[in-house]
Amino acid sequence: MANAKVIAKVIAAGNSEYIVVPRRIYHWINLISIAVLAFTGWYIHAPFATDVLKMGMMQSLHFIFVWVFTINFGLRLWFAFFGKAGDWKVYLKPWENNDSLAWTLRHYLLFQPCLEKRKCRVLQRASYVVIALFYIVQIVSGFQLYWPDNQTLSLITVVSGGLAMVRKVHLLLMWFFVSFAILHTYIAVTYEFGLVKHMFFGVPNEE
């Protein structure tokens, strides 16, 4: 288990290899809520007549997990910036970490092998910033659809081109998250399986 010394070392090194418990809890809740939200949201978007799935049930689940997801994400943001092992630098300044922008560019643009382990992940880290921004768009557009009569949100709706457009954005981003999840899983399992075990079950990463 994590002791303060290890955490301190991790922070000092600017290293994110050690995944602290709050990040692991966040990841679990995020995984479950996105899975539920994507499935129920897809059913709400493309319902079909069935005796098993009920629109009312799907909507209730969606609306419950909206809060789970939003609060979880809010806490994660708070943790990133103000937490004891806050890691916002890892994502917002990905080149300052163990990683190097030069290595990453050489790896991606010139197909050179990444000679030193875990040095070429600037783009990977930056992609999580995009994901976080999309989470915010998804949350705002979701609440626009959830509270269509809210005056403040209506203003955003007008700017973004009406409720029909908001639905499209909300749906398109759902597909984006699903595609991302597939690649995320594939890359993590094939390249960093140690980290996967670490993330889910706290097994120390021995690699």
Partner: peptide, 26 residues
């Protein structure tokens, strides 16, 4: 249907292609 205004492409088609490409790519 929920289509993107330009070109009348179904968003679900875009999504399914994206997911398909990701899965096949992996």
């Amino acid at each position: 249907q929920d289509t993107i205004d330009a070109g009348k492409i179904d968003i679900d088609t875009i999504g399914e292609v994206a997911v398909g490409v990701a899965a096949v790519g992996a």
